[in-house]
Amino acid sequence: MYDFELLKPATIDEAAAMLAEGDAQALGGGQTLIPTMKARLAQMDRLVALSGIDAIRGVCTDDDGRICIGGGTSHATVAREYAKSYPALASLAGRIGDPAVRSRGTIGGSLANNDPSACYPAAALASNATIVTNTRDIGADDFFQGMFTTALEEGEIITEVRFPVPEKAAYEKFIQPASRFPLVAVFVAKFADGVRVAVTGASSDGVFRWSEAEQALSDDWSADVVAGLAAPGAEGMISDLHGDGAYRAHLVKVMTARAVKGAV
């Protein structure tokens, strides 16, 4: 890893000012960025550690009943705090990587990175979450813009993520055991005004909503209705040594049906 200067701001404003100057990048839990820097796929003059900013850590509930998770909150904290109030989200957080990854990795880092196989983007998109930054609020439908691409501007910091809590939801992860990321995973969320289905690990455009399943499930909330749908098209799906596009497309359907069956 090339050397850099590590900066440790205590407030969001300080961090934003440091990120605005020269060649600087934010460090969340480092569980993606540090391996990337070791592989020399990323380098910078200054790394701005967000871990000392208390204001972006921790969880609460807002006046609309949405759960609000600070951008610097670890996966382990989300797994622990939401076991009762949003079990599908807690279960997702509790299955990311392994315990040591969950101690350090943060929701803000996961969303900002938008790995096409990451877990949190599926939860944010299916729950219609709002991603709050130091400058604005971004709806999940606008936030994710393709593999490793988001609406974030250079130096913009995710300070909070607000999740409306669905009536029922589940996250079904078909694990790729070597990486512990999903091969394909599906988050379904049933709200009073309709169902949202978000898929990760499958498309080379990153997380996406499977609209045919959303319509069918909004009319009839049952795993059987998913069985009657055609799987999404295999073109545009990730094809690699772990599974080809057609296999991933098939898994989308299977994981969606399982998620509906298991939703709480």
Binding site: Q31, I34, A100, V101, R104
Partner: peptide
């Protein structure tokens, strides 16, 4: 628990 190879 943390991976000491993945923290500064």
């Amino acid at each position: 628990p943390v991976k000491a190879c993945t923290v500064l």
